[in-house]
Simulated scan of single mutants.
Amino acid sequence: MKNRLFTVIPCYNEEEVLSETARRLRKKYTALMQSGQIAKDSRIAFVNDGSSDRTWQIICDLHAQDPVFTGIDLSRNRGHQNALIAGLLTVKAHADMVISMDADLQDDIDAMDEMIEKYHEGCDIVYGVRNSRKKDSFFKRTTAEAFYRLMNRLGAKTVFNHADYRLMSRRALDGLAQFREVNLFLRGLVPMIGYRTDTVLYERHERFAGESKYPLKKMLSFAFEGITSLSTKPIRMISALGFLLFFISILMSIIFIVEFFLGQTVSGWASLIVSIWAIGGLLMLAIGVVGEYIGKIYMEVKDRPRFLIARFLEEEDEHEE
């Protein structure tokens, strides 16, 4: 089995951690090459997602010092998911298998060994799954686990406690390339590919340096993006609730008509005002959810490119040769 490995690492303002990430990955690659698990011409590809610091310069310096490092420079910032798929689809023609991971060293590099073993056993996709969340705060642990359960209940099937640390074969990447949507949520798209899959448990570490690129506001936006990109259940839930309220309104109308003919007065304005606010709020919520889907349709029909590559150091080297 061919075994040229590319590791794809999206980077956005990662100058504080990039050198250490490169050092640890180079050490791991050396061990994997010596054991024959990966080919000698395997590569580590950093994807610069429009960073405003020295990230791209560091990537170029690493490439100049050691050909095992290569870089992909996006034309502008496109967000983590677009940067990740840009890297995956750019290197898939050069690789037999690709591992994606973050630059902050929270993903356990040593788990790569078992991922590669499972690839050699015939797996096309190997998911890196956290073995526990003991190091997370109570709030983060609770919200993260609720997120995965909510996603699955709403029809967006994901792998529990899996982020974007995974191995994919070239065949799996060819399958991923056929998903053309602009609104990306790779944690939900990759399981749709199928083929033989497996998981590798690992312990997630603390961030080595720098600040997290996913504060609470961005995490909530990411969760909402995942739900609306992969599932239509929210619209169906609103439709079901609308039918329920319509049925209740018919019953209430019958009650009011009966009370009118019996000469009974309406109990007061409170119930009326509460009803108006409740129905008004539901309508606004429904319009908002439906509007979100219409907005996504609007973005999809434009068929804009998900990313543009400014430079790919690997191809530049090949042309020079």
Rank of each mutant, 00 (worst) to 15 (best):
R187G: 13
M192C: 10
L241H: 02
V159R: 05
R141T: 10
I238M: 06
N161F: 11
A156H: 02
V159M: 06
A163Y: 13
R196T: 11
R196V: 09
T142Y: 09
P215I: 02
A163S: 15
F208M: 08
L201S: 14
K218N: 01
R196D: 10
R149N: 13
P215L: 01
A144W: 02
L150Y: 07
A163I: 07
L241R: 06
Y202N: 06
V200E: 03
L176V: 03
A223T: 05
R196L: 11
A144L: 14
M219T: 09
E206S: 12
V182Y: 15
S212K: 03
L173K: 03
A177F: 01
G188K: 01
L154N: 09
G210D: 05
R236F: 06
E211Y: 04
F185Y: 15
A156M: 09
G194A: 07
R141I: 01
L173I: 04
L244T: 05
S169V: 09
G210F: 06
Y165W: 13
R196S: 12
F139G: 00
G155E: 06
A240R: 09
P234E: 02
L216R: 03
F147P: 00
M237V: 08
Q178W: 00
F222Q: 03
E206L: 12
S212F: 03
L201G: 07
A172I: 01
F224V: 11
S231Y: 01
A146H: 09
F243S: 10
S137A: 03
R171G: 07
G242F: 09
Y195V: 07
S212N: 08
S137Y: 03
R207D: 01
E145K: 08
F160T: 10
N152I: 04
K134C: 04
R180D: 14
V159L: 06
S169Y: 09
Y195M: 15
N183P: 00
T158V: 15
V182Q: 10
L244N: 01
G226Y: 00
T143D: 04
K213A: 09
L245V: 12
I235L: 15
A240Q: 10
H162M: 06
K134P: 00
F179L: 05
P215M: 02
L245M: 12
V200Q: 03
R187M: 15
Y148V: 04
D136A: 08
F222N: 09
A172Q: 08
A144K: 15
R236Y: 05
E145S: 14
L173C: 04
R153G: 04
L216T: 11
E211S: 12
T143V: 15
E211R: 14
M237L: 14
G242E: 08
L216A: 13
I193N: 05
L184N: 00
L184G: 00
R171Y: 08
T142I: 03
A223F: 13
M219W: 04
M151K: 14
L230E: 03
P234L: 01
K140L: 14
I193A: 04
N183A: 11
R204H: 12
Y214I: 10
S221D: 12
H205E: 10
G226R: 00
L220A: 11
Q178M: 13
L167C: 09
F160D: 14
R187K: 12
E145L: 14
L167S: 10
R196F: 03
T232R: 07
